[in-house]
Amino acid sequence: MTFLRTHRTLATVIAFVLAYVVIKLLSVLPLVDGGPLLNGYYIQLIALVGINIVMTVSLGMVNGFTGQFSIGHAGFMAVGAYTSAMITTVWLHTSTANPWTAYPVFIAAILTGGLLAAAAGYLVGAPSLRLKGDYLAIVTLSANELIRTVIRVTEVLGGPRGLGGIPKLTTLEVVFVFAIVSVVLMRNYLFSSYGRSMKAVRDSEIAAESMAINTTRQKVFVFVFSAFFAGVSGGVFAHLLQFIHPDNFSFVKSLEYLIYLYVGGSTSISGAMVGPAIFTFLPELMRGLQKWRLVPQRHRKEVSA
């Protein structure tokens, strides 16, 4: 048993590393005419998949394994994104700063973003997780939109115009390291006594409480670390796109993560990783079809002309 569980973690790491090697090869080797198969656009998309995986897995900790229904995950992502972006844009004046100083600042910035998101998670979760039923859903949804409103009215954060000029510090490598570390940490937690308590809360809260588990504390803790990972993802996201806007983190974005989660399967970590992978790419693959979408119209125009 013990042996197998170590292997499970190792398998995750190996899978990620293999994926990295393949992607890297595809992005350098000139396989098709005029260059490699994966151009910068696809690399960016893959980096987004990595970020979405961490978002979805961390949402799954709350919704899938603890049986709660949080629908405002993007709000915590916004807290992390704006916090870290503020730190790096102020501290690193140019986007071409020396990597030896840039990366320590970057890491400190995204961790600070994560911590602030965790604090926001505590503020939202501590009062609402005591209540049963749909209240967590309603409160998280509202908190998500409230965070977005606060950003919109705060001039320092760029208000409704968004925040630009963020140094491009997120590379494919950063995303991979970030995703591996996050997923392994969360998976480890799940395979522990605390992880079992989470599932106990999901299966029967009354029974868990009767079996001496402080269910409120367990729920709040899971919610807080889930918000932490969302915050860090936000930081990584901000330094990938270099421009963030309050509308990037709306309630609709939170719904996207819910869909990723439930499509892949909310009660398995691998499911929570498959969902975002499919759904980040699917619209892009469909985009090839999009040019056909207007064909009937164009055809009509030609006929009438």
């Binding site: 409160v139 409230l146 606060v150 919109r152 009215v153 409704p160």
Partner: peptide
């Protein structure tokens, strides 16, 4: 105008 949108959520919470 941005506050108008968010106020509802603050009241609700």
């Amino acid at each position: 105008s941005n506050l108008g949108y968010g106020i509802a959520f603050a009241i609700l919470i």
